[in-house]
Design a protein around this nucleic acid. Sequence first.
DNA 1: TAGATTGTTAATCGATTAACAATC
DNA 2: TAGATTGTTAATCGATTAACAATC
Lengths: 207, 207
Amino acid sequence: MPNKNDVIRLSRYRNALVRLRALNFVKVFCDNLADATGVSAAQVRKDFSTFDISQNSRGGYDVKELLKRLNKILNKDTTHEFIEVGAGNLGKALLRYPGFARSGIKIVACFDVDPDKYDRQAEIPVLPIEELDDFVREHQIRFGIISTPDVAAQQVLVRMISAGIKGVLNFASIYLRGPEDCVINNINLESEIENIVYFVNLAEKSK
Amino acid sequence: MPNKNDVIRLSRYRNALVRLRALNFVKVFCDNLADATGVSAAQVRKDFSTFDISQNSRGGYDVKELLKRLNKILNKDTTHEFIEVGAGNLGKALLRYPGFARSGIKIVACFDVDPDKYDRQAEIPVLPIEELDDFVREHQIRFGIISTPDVAAQQVLVRMISAGIKGVLNFASIYLRGPEDCVINNINLESEIENIVYFVNLAEKSK
DNA sequence: TAGATTGTTAATCGATTAACAATC
DNA sequence: TAGATTGTTAATCGATTAACAATC
């Protein structure tokens, strides 16, 4: 029932709550969350309604309780294991990205085609792509990150899916789609840049 | 009139066309673009209509002509200069990200608070954050990338905007907003991950 | 010409907002 | 109790799709 945007907003509420908790907030109202996240108060209430989040009809929400609830819904209570394919600049940076650990995810291995990149001793080992299938099956990995060049992305996806991966975060500038039962989120940095440039230029032209 | 999603789809059509051209396609039909990008053919026609793209009412589009048109609309004909703030792992990886050059953007300088990161001799120099304002004004930079830790993001944004920057790509896990005349695109990797985990778990539960 | 595809308008669908009764 | 905020339903708004006349 909830769609991608609903869950994205839930993430944002959670994020705001973490910061509010750090400021010692005990109670929080719909209006507070709306202000903090840039959505309308009606939207906040609607979202809580669709996720069956309610407290006592008045007097706002207890910050800690609400956070617990959101953490539960967003599966933040357990750690999720990911693999990554593509140990280039971006790929290596992502291996060390602190936000992932914070998000409760752990990248357990990286794969690449380039023998120069292999490193079995590293904390997060870099292995030959041929080992992906066995590794994924053996460790029952369900999530993957694609940080390869564009040309390789499609075939990497196919490989991941056939090995049993169900959720993919794709950084290649190609819009990837998969079967029904597979979740693919595409992050296209080139598109985002083009988008910014477009609207800034538009604003300047119309002056 | 066109909104963010319209322009994002335009980017995708462009991307698909680049690949089709590489395959020596001369003509392309709405249906081809629809298949290649995962949108409906009606959507493709609607989008072309809103951007006043038309050719001859039948017989599809000339790939090269259409590409030219999209490049023009998306401002791919000129190079755009960016600055970046935050020379951590992600920041450094982005400096070397080949997709940016391909997108016609050039990061001309990076800024950080950490003196250990300064490097004036590098191809893309890393400078003290205090020099941001003068640099932006002097070089008339309009675009910026934020790749700092979350806690710094908000104040970096304020600084960028007061220096005259109009478009920002934000990688911190905080949803940033700015004034009316400023375009901010937030890329929240944590949210994306949470999103994938949510939907994969949901699918597994409902089995 | 007949057939096929476009460009655009109208119809549908879904998401956001407004409103208000229920509640503490 | 009176006042204020929630939770939910109905109204509005916008985006996507369907349909079809225009066109080559």
